[in-house]
């Protein structure tokens, strides 16, 4: 019986990889995640449902109600609805994401990204290649960031473009130029807010993922932090009747910064504390990652 089914072949002419190592890693991880049907069914597609619902709402408000031949009372109602398709409306989309889907993405996708590699000692295989830890971390970051941007930035911007494209012309109750004027800051707000939400979440989830070897444990840690920090903040807010302690909660810090970017909400300077809190979390997460993901980590 032959020992092997095929002889060894030396490579005659060695080509060059066209992609940076971190993108190669990210591409491979993304393809792997897309192949998981459960993840596709219970996280990716549900994350896109709010955007679909909001597009339908935009269509109903801007096309059916605004252009409809409505009785006097209904016209007032329609005008009220029209007011809703402004910055508040777009920010609502991100509020839904910050409240629910960040939790799901972190627990079911992010938690396993590094913990899984640590469990199977894949780091030993990765770092004996010409791969640095920044490339490794960059690949993991891009993987989670891709999905978060796919379900926040892309649909957020699509909703705005959809609204602009179907806003009634002169003969309707709204003029496109007026609508554009009222929401001109929205695309940039969507971009900046998506990036802030994605960066904060990705670094924190990856840092937590580097602490354990079980995605269930890391997922529970992430969920616990996410929910418990909100509970603490809400208790403090009720007791002090102030939003000054917003830095305690990741979700509320994100929302506070979001309100500033979308120019909505109650105003105040709490967004500065929230932004500082997010910055501190980012730096702390990076520190943890660089401490945990080391080449010598492969040695027990």
């Amino acid at each position: 019986m032959p020992v092997h089914e095929q002889g060894y072949r030396r490579i005659d002419e060695r080509g060059q990889a066209r992609m940076p190592a971190f993108l190669t890693m990210a591409r491979s991880e993304i393809a792997l995640l897309f192949s998981r049907k459960l993840l596709l069914s219970f996280v990716i597609l549900p994350s896109l449902l709010p955007a679909l619902g909001m597009m339908i709402a935009v269509y109903v408000v801007l096309q059916v109600i605004a252009q409809g031949d409505l009785p006097a009372g209904a016209s007032t109602l329609a005008a009220g609805f029209l007011q809703q398709v402004g910055p508040d409306f777009y920010f609502l989309f991100f509020k839904i994401h910050a409240s629910t889907f960040l939790l799901l993405w972190g627990a079911f996708v992010g938690a396993d990204l590094i913990a899984g590699d640590r469990k199977t000692r894949a780091l030993e295989l990765y770092f004996t290649r010409p791969l640095g830890r920044f490339s490794y971390l960059g690949g993991k970051f891009c993987t989670l960031a891709f999905f978060l941007l796919l379900t926040t930035f892309v649909p957020g911007l699509l909703i705005w473009l959809f609204a602009v494209s179907i806003a009634p012309e002169e003969e309707g109750s709204m003029v496109v130029s007026q609508y554009l004027e009222a929401t001109r800051h929205v695309p940039m707000a969507i971009l900046y807010y998506s990036l802030i939400m994605t960066t904060s979440t990705c670094t924190l989830v990856l840092a937590l993922s580097s602490l354990g070897k079980s995605w269930i444990l890391v997922g529970a840690l992430w969920g616990g932090y996410f929910l418990f920090s909100q509970i603490i903040y809400n208790i403090v807010r009720e007791l002090t009747e102030s939003r000054a302690a917003v830095f305690l909660s990741l979700k509320d810090s994100l929302l506070e910064v979001g309100e500033k970017l979308f120019r909505t909400g109650q105003g105040g300077d709490e967004w500065v504390r929230a932004a500082v809190a997010l910055g501190v979390l980012f730096v702390l997460s990076l520190f943890i990652l660089l401490r945990r993901i080391r080449v010598v980590e492969t040695v027990s």
Binding site: I11, R14, G15, Q16, A17, R18, M19, A21, T24, M25, S28, L125, Y126, R129, P130, L131
Partner: peptide
Amino acid sequence: LTLLGELSGLPFLE
């Protein structure tokens, strides 16, 4: 192995 090969500097198809 494809991923590890790419990380070692080989183009995807190779």
